[in-house]
Amino acid sequence: MTTAPPAADQGGRGSPGRLRTVRRTGFSIGLATGLYGISFGALATASGLHVWQAMVLSAVMFTGGSQFAFIGVVGGGGSALGAALASVLLGLRNTLYGLILAPSLPHRGVKGILRAHLTIDESAALAASGTDTAEKRTGFWAAGLWVFVFWNLFSLVGALAGQYVADPRAWGLDAAAAAAFLALLWPRLRSGDAVVIAVAAAFIALLTTPVLPPGLPVLAAALVAVVAGLLPSRHHPVPAASSRDGEGATTARNPEQEGER
């Protein structure tokens, strides 16, 4: 790729200059996202997970929202099954990213497996912001690989540090987890519908907290989304509106990027 002659920048066919910029963006996203692996690792071991359990989640589950949900349920006294269910439900969006990305990433074998494993908010977002196939591919691999490297590195740092926290409450780590969920939710609240659903889900979770075993209120609240999603949509008469999800992911990382600059 580096042997290619310097091409003119017009034409937009993934010129070397543009691709270099995309790769650099992927690195910045990887570093910024990876850094909050520290908070994941620390919260995980402070919630009672073993360092290696935290690392299996970061290396194999490898999707931040689901990982935070898993340790949130465990830390709140929920069952291991409830934790697994919450993480699986949050991970459903990665299936959607795969559907969207499949045409621009036609790989089989080892690369096909890697492609699936690196499918997360950040890689899907950078791929979605590419203007042609070359940019989409470069963005996907750059963001996916760098997030993987830094996320695991900083998860380990956080997990080792979290072990030495005797009383997570005294360090405010329970509040840190709540703020982490809010920060993950924030970029998704771009429409009135989204705000209504988030508030309704929060309300149902609190209403059912006294009556359901720990962990289940969160799943009960998820039903809000299923019901709302299956109801005929009045606000969006155009069915294509829902395929904008890839863009939703793009904006999801914008606060991070802006924070870096």
Binding site: G65, A86, L96, L189, I197, A202, P217, A228
Partner: peptide, 29 residues
């Protein structure tokens, strides 16, 4: 569209619920 809508809304509902329980729940209280 319904499949895409549910997949988009699920993270919003789950994260909303997690913010609420992580902020105000302590066991069953």
């Amino acid at each position: 569209p319904r499949i895409a809508r549910v997949t988009t809304l699920l993270p919003i509902a789950l994260l909303g619920a997690l913010v609420a329980t992580q902020t105000a729940a302590s066991g069953a209280e």
